[in-house]
Design a protein around this nucleic acid. Structure first.
Lengths: 229, 229
DNA sequence: AGGGTTTTCGCCTCCGGGGCATAAACTAGA
DNA sequence: TCTAGTTTATGCCCCGGAGGCGAAAACCCT
């Protein structure tokens, strides 16, 4: 078949940028131009030819919303979109995790919004935020994904707070430390930190041993091989 | 910024089609035209405007390689590709699972190849096959993904053979039945089947209760909520 | 010094996966 | 018909990880 029979699309990337403060928040961008003027949307933009999709994503995160310290960046999915009046768009969405403590200086018209109380989001991007949250919930349970959300060093209580903000239910700091510690993902730094305003035993300070995503839990049920590599 | 500053790409879909016979096999297509003439590549093709990506994928699977009975279809990832001499391609890859017993009548220049002994594959598609295999291995361990690879009805021994072909190590039929049965994913049909040429107790016949992907295993460690819904 | 607060450690229990031995069901052959 | 061989099914035990709980540790404030 001839390639001329097919129209061409404009590749677009956009990211569900997540961070944890008291609650789980995502970064939204108020559109100042049509289409969808005055609506919120995910940060992103067009892809240049010769550029990798991930490269384009990082470029837009740095240029448009000042996000340079990305803890983890991962592709979610792609879809064909007819939301633009003139162009056929091919929309590739990403999940970006921002560590606590890295506060990008946001340009105007860019704000953090709690994922539990989102404003009206254009282009059907609300679904992408939901899928990103869902995937993150899964990854927290079988990998060290929290390294990309937590600050470089933290107490077990602080780390449990990160988990609670994402998972939505109470997490035991004791158990969390045991599980991640046994998998070799967490190590004490040796330092300690004062408990709080009302006293209490100082908490030991921990850090993740690796800063890339590591799948720790088996994922291989039904009799894994004996000498597991 | 103006959209005119950005060039346009041709969206392309292609699939890692997997099935299990004695071994895990993938469907490859021998290219008869440049680029990469006489090399093997994944089946796929261009996307039409207004068409969903998944729709385009199913259309190409049906038209080009005669695959209509797709047990499960899932997007893997997308990348920007400069492998075409004239066009900028945006390559979206899928994982397609074909149930045992559904034998599509393949057009010429299309053949099943064991994933352990692949021929030379063009466009860097070999990496996509590896990633597809990896993801399938994971999904078998925490979901009912095998429903898309197994025949409609089967014995536990046959199901274990499917798992072994994908996972690469021995799987106990007893344990497999216990685990999937407890999760409510597997149910006996009531029928039985003769064991083999040399006699033996007839095996009970089973079937998956659901034909969509269901994540059974918790994935929610660190104290799941009490009344799990 | 004492009460309040928070973290940490040790022990216990519970439950699911895996292994194993035995029983069950069938075929082929003598 | 009886026996040997083969394959599947069932019941039981073991083990290891996750979670719960209480006691001890470490610190603040009064």
């Amino acid at each position: 078949m001839s390639t001329a029979a097919y129209r061409l699309a404009a590749p677009v990337v956009n990211a569900v940028v997540l961070r944890v403060t008291d609650r789980l928040e995502t970064l939204l961008w108020r559109r100042s131009r049509p289409p969808a003027e005055d609506c919120w949307s995910l940060p992103g933009g067009f892809v240049r030819q010769g550029e990798s999709l991930e490269g384009a994503m990082r470029r837009h995160l740095a240029a448009k919303v000042g996000v340079t310290d990305v803890g983890h960046l991962e592709q979610l999915d792609s879809r064909s979109a007819d939301t633009h009046p003139e162009l056929w768009l091919l929309d590739v969405s990403y999940l970006a995790l921002i560590p606590r403590g890295a506060e990008p200086d946001l340009p105007p018209d860019t704000e953090w919004h709690p994922v539990e109380a989102l404003p009206t989001v254009a282009f059907g991007h609300a679904g992408a935020i939901g899928r990103a949250h869902e995937r993150l919930r899964g990854k927290l349970s079988y990998s060290n994904a929290a390294f990309a959300l937590a600050p470089p060093r933290f107490t077990l209580r602080e780390l449990a707070d990160v988990y609670e903000a994402v998972l939505g239910y109470a997490v035991s700091p004791t158990n969390l430390g045991r599980v991640l510690g046994r998998d070799g993902l967490l190590a004490p730094t040796g330092g300690h930190r004062r408990a709080g305003s009302a006293g209490g035993r100082p908490a030991a300070e921990f850090a993740f041993t690796r800063r890339e995503l590591v799948v720790s839990r088996p994922l291989a049920a039904f009799k894994p091989p004996e000498g597991a590599a």
